[in-house]
């Protein structure tokens, strides 16, 4: 049976379904009995969802002018090679 420390060390693997079945069983057993680790895991899940919705998660915007400028750069770089 894993300790609380073991639970916290591998909780991303547990949430991402990346543990072998016997470790998963250990997780279930521990979580069935440990209210603290259940809370820890719920908070990790909430953290992951919050990261995904945080302002830092927004993909930087690229204007048509920027796209054009980069395309020009790319054209020049291939000309230099020829």
């Amino acid at each position: 049976m894993p300790s609380c420390k073991d639970i916290t060390e591998h909780s991303s693997d547990y949430l991402d379904h990346n543990l072998p079945w016997w470790k998963r069983m250990g997780y279930w057993l521990h979580l069935a009995m440990c209210v603290h680790c259940r809370r820890y895991l719920d908070q990790l899940k909430l953290t992951i969802d919050t990261i995904g919705k945080s302002p830092d998660a927004t993909t930087p915007n690229v204007s048509p002018e920027e796209i054009q400028a980069i395309v020009e750069k790319m054209k020049q770089s291939t000309k230099k090679q020829e």
């Binding site: 060390e9 440990c34 919050t50």
Partner: peptide, 26 residues
Amino acid sequence: PIIDPARLKPNAHWASPPAMWHADTP
């Protein structure tokens, strides 16, 4: 370590477990 060792008992179980958060959605 992932968790500050000071928060764990010598048997690697919680001594100072996570507290409830005020908010429960992102």
